[in-house]
Simulated assay, not measured.
Amino acid sequence: MTQVIHHLIERYGLIAVFLGCVAEGESAAILGGFFAHQHVFVIWQALLAAFLGAFVGDTFFFFLGHSFAEHRWVRRLRRRPGFNHAYRLVRKHPNIFVLSNRYIYGMRLVGGVASGLSGIPVWRFVLLNALSSLVWALLFGTLGYVFGLGAEQIIGRALLHHQRLLIALGIGLAVVIVAALVAHYIAKRERVKETD
């Protein structure tokens, strides 16, 4: 079973890192770095997949807001908790918002749509988003790589390769659960703020 998992990660792992980073992807970028440390991926490939996923995801949601403001998906995203707050921020500080939106968990989707609706020129958004996505991919991919070094020291070199992969999957699952709990808490807090 572990050989099958190992084979799937080797074959489709970079695609999973890319897709994970399209949306709310810190855990995907961290796992990409971790697997690069385990020599499943080459580090530059993991970082590139994380960068492209982050850039494509944010740009997609920007163009949704920019070009399809009245589409039902965009209207639905505009009703999500935090949209009004994101829209106010992007109107007030557009450059800072675009550079920092990727780091605010739970706001990326609505932040991208808010950016598209705010009137930021496309060229400016693309440049700022590329810079933000690059820094983000380097930060979280390197964190996963360094975490791989630390995990290897803690767990010890005696573990077999497939056991390390299972531990990495467990760590990834833990990161996803914690991120979901944090997002739920932030969304709940935003709903309370919007009703006040």
Rank of each mutant, 00 (worst) to 15 (best):
His66Thr: 00
Arg79Ala: 14
Leu131Asn: 03
Asp196Leu: 13
Asn95Asp: 11
His37Gln: 14
Pro94Gln: 07
Val110Leu: 13
Pro81Trp: 01
Ala180Glu: 03
Leu31Thr: 14
Val42Leu: 09
Phe18Arg: 09
Phe34Tyr: 15
Leu117Phe: 05
Ile171Met: 15
Leu149Ile: 14
Val22Pro: 02
Gly172Trp: 13
Asn129Phe: 07
Leu127Ser: 09
Gly170Thr: 14
Ile120His: 08
Phe18Ile: 02
Arg80Lys: 10
Ala179Met: 11
Gly141Trp: 06
Leu14Pro: 09
His7Asn: 12
Phe147Cys: 11
Arg78Tyr: 02
Ala137Thr: 03
Leu165Cys: 10
Tyr12Ala: 12
Leu109Val: 14
Ser27Val: 04
His184Pro: 00
Gly106Gln: 01
Ala130Val: 02
Val122Gly: 00
Arg91Pro: 01
Gly111Met: 08
Arg75Met: 10
His162Gly: 06
Ala187Asn: 08
Ala28Asp: 07
Arg80Ser: 10
His71Ser: 09
Ile154Thr: 11
Gly116Pro: 04
Leu166His: 12
Tyr145Gly: 04
Ile154Pro: 05
Tyr105Val: 11
Tyr185Asp: 01
Pro94Ser: 05
Thr195Tyr: 03
Val42Cys: 01
Arg75Gln: 13
Leu31Cys: 15
Ile186Ala: 04
Ile96Arg: 12
Val22Ser: 03
Gly82Trp: 09
Phe68Gly: 00
Tyr185Ala: 08
Ile177Leu: 15
Val192Asp: 04
Ala179Gln: 04
Gly172Val: 14
Ile5Ser: 13
Leu109His: 07
Ile171Phe: 15
Ala16Asp: 09
Gly112Thr: 05
His39Gly: 03
Asn129His: 06
Gly65Ile: 07
Ile5Val: 15
Val98Ala: 11
Phe125Thr: 09
Gly32Trp: 06
His39Glu: 14
Leu47Arg: 00
Phe68Met: 05
Ala151Ile: 12
Ala168Thr: 12
Leu127Trp: 11
Asn129Asp: 14
Leu169Lys: 12
Leu165Ala: 14
Asn101Asp: 12
Gly13Ser: 13
Leu47Pro: 00
His184Asp: 02
Ala158Thr: 08
Cys21Ile: 05
His66Ile: 00
Trp44Arg: 05
Arg72Pro: 10
Ile154Lys: 02
Val176Asp: 01
Gly53Thr: 07
Phe18Ala: 03
Val178Phe: 12
Leu128Val: 08
His184Trp: 00
Ile9Met: 15
Arg91Cys: 11
His71Trp: 09
Leu19His: 00
Val113Ser: 08
Glu26Trp: 01
Arg108Lys: 03
Gln3Cys: 02
Gly65Asp: 04
Leu166Cys: 14
Pro81Val: 02
